[in-house]
């Protein structure tokens, strides 16, 4: 146990929020992709987060006596949105079906922007928490002077 735990935990938050930003950016970039790798229109992806259990040497020490420490956050997976694709009437499009409709990705740019802001703000909160832990640690080191 120590202040390094707080820094590790904040680091896990930074990694998770950054992945959310990456996936959101991927959704926005593919908002018009009518043919993905599987030949189907692109489907919106979403990051699923879950609480991480503390692992490794620190956790073994903690379970040996001291209180259970915090483990931070981890990504349990990236799932595809099951919402149906948006149908747009565009008979000239090479991907149009017999009725002239094109299946567009189920990406809503507004939703993506909101997700992006949420991830960005959470990232900032984690950075602040990490800076706070760092400041406290250097204050403690000053005791040795």
């Amino acid at each position: 146990m120590g202040l390094f735990d707080a820094i590790d935990v904040a680091g896990s938050g930074l990694a998770a929020e950054r992945l959310r930003m990456d996936v959101t950016a991927g959704n926005l970039a593919n908002a018009q992709t009518t043919k993905g790798a599987n030949g189907q229109p692109y489907r919106r992806r979403e990051v699923v987060l879950q609480e991480a259990q503390p692992g490794g040497f620190g956790a073994a020490l903690a379970s040996a006596g001291a209180a259970q420490a915090a483990g931070g956050v981890q990504v349990s997976g990236i799932v595809e949105d099951t919402a149906p694709p948006r149908l747009v009437y565009d008979p000239g499009n090479p991907d149009a079906n017999a009725q002239g409709y094109v299946a567009m990705p189920n990406v809503n740019p507004v939703t993506e922007m909101v997700d992006l802001i949420s991830a960005s703000r959470s990232y900032e909160a984690d950075v602040t928490a990490m800076q706070s832990a760092k400041t406290l640690f250097s204050k403690t080191l000053e005791l040795l002077k």
């Binding site: 146990m1 707080a6 904040a10 987060l49 609480e51 915090a70 483990g71 931070g72 909160a125």
Partner: peptide, 20 residues
Amino acid sequence: RGATLRQTLLTDNLANVNTP
């Protein structure tokens, strides 16, 4: 020691702000 533990727990809460 207590304040250090609390700091870690509060940081954990912030890291899990988007965890359902």
